[in-house]
């Protein structure tokens, strides 16, 4: 029960953490601007954050580095497809096919 309440609290906090950055300068108008150096540095935040989530997810199996595993192979396939083709569905189809195919082939 406690858990359910904290889940909605998380949603509200994340909602604020989305709407406030989005509305920030649009609402404030031109009265205030971020220092240009900070603006330039912040451009790297999304790429760094996404990679910090994705890389451990595909490289670690049970907490240790496992360079040969189905998730990593599927991720590499998805990356190659996303680089080569613009079709938004293809990385999902190929990535999932590689993951499920390897899981079916490899025991355990």
């Amino acid at each position: 029960m406690n858990d359910d309440i904290s889940l909605w609290l998380i949603f509200i906090v994340l909602g604020l953490a989305t709407t406030l950055p989005r509305a920030s300068f649009i609402v404030l108008g031109n009265r205030f601007n971020l220092p240009p150096t900070l603006q330039r540095a912040l451009r790297y935040a999304p790429a760094a954050a996404l990679a910090a989530i994705v890389v451990p997810d595909v490289l670690l199996v049970g907490g240790s580095v496992e360079p040969i595993n189905p998730k990593l192979a599927a991720a590499i396939a998805a990356i190659l497809v996303a680089i080569r083709w613009r079709n938004p569905w293809l990385p999902f189809i190929v990535g999932m096919a590689v993951l499920l195919g390897l899981k079916a082939l490899l025991p355990g």
Partner: peptide, 26 residues
């Protein structure tokens, strides 16, 4: 919660930049 918030903010930081960029359009 603070870690969830920090991660959410990091992923949303680009909006701060978009917001600053597009603000004159309003």
């Amino acid at each position: 919660l603070w870690l969830i918030l920090a991660t959410g903010l990091a992923l949303n930081l680009r909006f701060l930049i978009f917001s600053a960029g597009i603000a004159p359009g309003f």
